[in-house]
Design a binder for these strands. Structure first.
Lengths: 214, 214
DNA sequence: TTTTGTATTGAATAATCATTCAATATGAGT
DNA sequence: ACTCATATTGAATGATTATTCAATACAAAA
């Protein structure tokens, strides 16, 4: 995982905040949180999983807090990138874009149980750690407003007027958060297929003539 | 808060797992988790807030884990009772019952930021603590099936057939979970009024003839 | 008042962990 | 081969905190 193509010594990359060890530690942090919970995640365990010494992990990230923060940032960026790719794809019409968003939100890369466990762990601490909040909240506002704009386009094309774009987009985003949480409890019942189906049915009910919401 | 009407010495109530101190400690636990997060909640802080000694808190609940568990149980029971009251009220027709459920889910007693912070904290640990899971999951399944049954009644009366009762009830329950989480981030934007309005609009869109979904 | 059983204290204990840092390994340049 | 700069180790440190328990307060009964 994350092997750089050419063998480069780590220190050459240090200032860029990237190296094999840097990423190995972040991956190990995510795995550890997913397996044991944020509260039971220790530097020792993370270091062991990343196969570096405990001291090194601390040295590399300056503090445990910073390691956790970097891991959250990594997940946040991963999601952001997948979102942006959809919004920058000019081959998609509004409905096609909505469908891609849904597929992405319940893809196995994004909505797997490990990553959700990490998200929820951080979410639960957001109220107490301004640094977590600043990573998540700003992005969340962007997603909200971009989604609303997108739905506005869909609404116009599909001649729907009872629900406002804001209502539809807020409902969608809440549903996704709720379903993610439920995947944690009962991943069998809340399978990707089930979740995608549920959300698409929501849209199908609004845009009855649109055949693509399966 | 929770003053018993007559002055009774605590030990008379001990076997019933209830006493002034018992409840004071649970209240203090919830407040502490809400204020500092599950990870930073220590027995010392809880004991201080409950105005008993640290040793006593431990003695009374046998362990920190048990104190946390009792607090989760308290919240879970509180929600359960409010839910049951609605389902046992024979004056309500199906739609009236749905509306009461919505009002309850976003009442200030249930959906306040402190209690949500506690819920989310526990949720985030559910994957790792079977004891938490057993308190939450069983109830959640009951809510799911009762809600589905209720929607079935509403569907029949309102002649709606495109969305299945299961789809509507799962969508509702997910939305509530998602909105709760969002209240944590941004309580101003996700006010009780906003959340209730959003959910009612969802139902209004499904049951267009039903005037009560505002 | 004295006794007795329970409630409550708070200081001591022991375990866990983040963090530090002196010592060592590594590998590129000479 | 030697030097030097950087990477990495792992044992020691110190802080935090759950848990224990001997000592004390209290209140009811005699």
């Amino acid at each position: 995982m994350n092997i750089s193509p050419k063998k480069i010594s780590d220190h050459q990359l240090e200032d860029q905040e990237f190296s094999i060890n840097h990423q190995k530690l972040i991956d190990a942090t995510i795995e550890t949180i997913a397996k044991r919970g944020l509260g039971d995640t220790t530097i020792a365990q993370v270091a062991k999983k990343a196969m570096v010494s405990q001291g090194y992990a601390n040295f590399r990230f300056k503090s445990k807090e910073n390691l956790l923060l970097s891991s959250l940032k990594f997940l946040s960026d991963e999601y952001k990138n997948s979102w942006q790719r959809i919004f920058e794809d000019n081959n998609l019409d509004p409905v096609g874009r909505v469908i891609k968003i849904i597929e992405n939100d319940f893809s196995s890369k994004i909505a797997n149980r490990n990553k959700i466990a990490v998200w929820v762990s951080f979410y639960s601490e957001v109220k107490f750690r301004p640094s977590y909040l600043s990573i998540c909240q700003k992005q969340d506002e962007i997603y909200s407003s971009q989604m609303e704009k997108l739905i506005k386009e869909v609404n116009i094309l599909n001649n729907q007027s009872f629900l406002t774009p804001k209502e539809i987009s807020e409902t969608y985003l809440s549903m996704v958060d709720g379903l993610w949480q439920r995947i944690l409890f009962d991943p069998k019942m809340y399978s990707h297929v089930f979740c995608k189906g549920l959300v698409k049915k929501y849209f199908k009910n609004i845009y009855t003539d649109e055949k693509r919401f399966v």
